[in-house]
Nucleic acid binder design. Structure first.
Length: 224
DNA sequence: CCCCAGGCTTTGC
DNA sequence: GCAAAGCATGGG
């Protein structure tokens, strides 16, 4: 299979085509729907390098605290760690949840105040939080805050690489590339990332090729 | 027993 | 600036 190198003129076309194929196959769905913003933020930390099943167990263990930053603030660190045990790395993640909550407190735990802030400013603030890297920051931005920042995760990388894209190794470079290929829109960014996860989870991660898209690849590569 | 899952920070070169 | 180690549980 031929690969499109970085800065190839067809690079963005390939990206758009992959999304188009997935969208036509799976149709629209509302991914991560109706989850309260604070709980969504906690979820982005808890799911780091684990599966959603384990992250969800941790959220359930938190009970009402999962959507109440005041309760998380009052919860002793070691108790918090024990509750989130199923998500793995629980000692580190407990510290991360505390740090994230401290950041939220600056805005009086009010998501509306957060949404007043400009995207680039918020992104810098989030990246400054201990335990929040690029992917987590973008997930918080798009799913909890509602800003158009595209999440680059293992699924996005894997699927694009298997479909001929020479994906930038650097996170920021990759994110900007995808964002240049798609109009900035929160709902669309959320949905397209959801498509990647949906598709990635339906196929064996060890497969050399991604069955659905690779079979469509000959038809979409040279599509204008 | 092995490997993997929607990362991030720290350390060492 | 990049590679490697460390963090830890649950499921196949």
């Amino acid at each position: 299979m031929s690969r499109l190198s970085a800065h190839s003129p067809n690079q963005r076309t390939l990206i758009r085509s992959v999304f188009a194929v997935l969208e036509s196959h799976y149709g629209y769905f509302d991914w991560w729907p109706d989850t309260p913003p604070y709980q969504t933020m906690l979820g982005t930390i808890l799911v780091q390098n684990t599966n959603w099943r384990n992250a969800d167990k941790a959220l359930n263990n938190l009970g009402k605290s999962a959507n109440n930053p005041h309760l998380i603030e009052l919860l002793p660190l070691d108790e918090l760690a024990q509750k989130i045990r199923p998500s793995g790395y629980f000692n580190q993640k407990a510290i991360k949840l505390k740090a994230l909550t401290e950041w939220f407190k600056v805005y009086q735990y009010d998501i509306k105040q957060v949404r007043e802030i400009e995207l680039s400013t918020l992104r810098k603030e989030l990246l400054a939080i201990k335990g929040v890297g690029g992917e987590t920051a973008d997930a918080i931005l798009v799913y909890a805050i509602g800003k158009p920042s595209f999440v680059i995760d293992a699924y996005v990388r894997r699927i694009f690489e298997r479909n001929g894209l020479e994906a930038p190794k650097n996170y920021e470079t990759f994110r900007l590339l995808v964002e240049q290929a798609i109009p900035a829109d929160t709902k669309r960014y959320a949905f397209y990332h959801g498509l990647m996860v949906e598709h990635g989870q339906q196929f064996c991660n060890k497969c050399a090729l991604c069955p659905l898209v690779s079979s469509c690849f000959p038809n979409i590569l040279f599509y204008p």
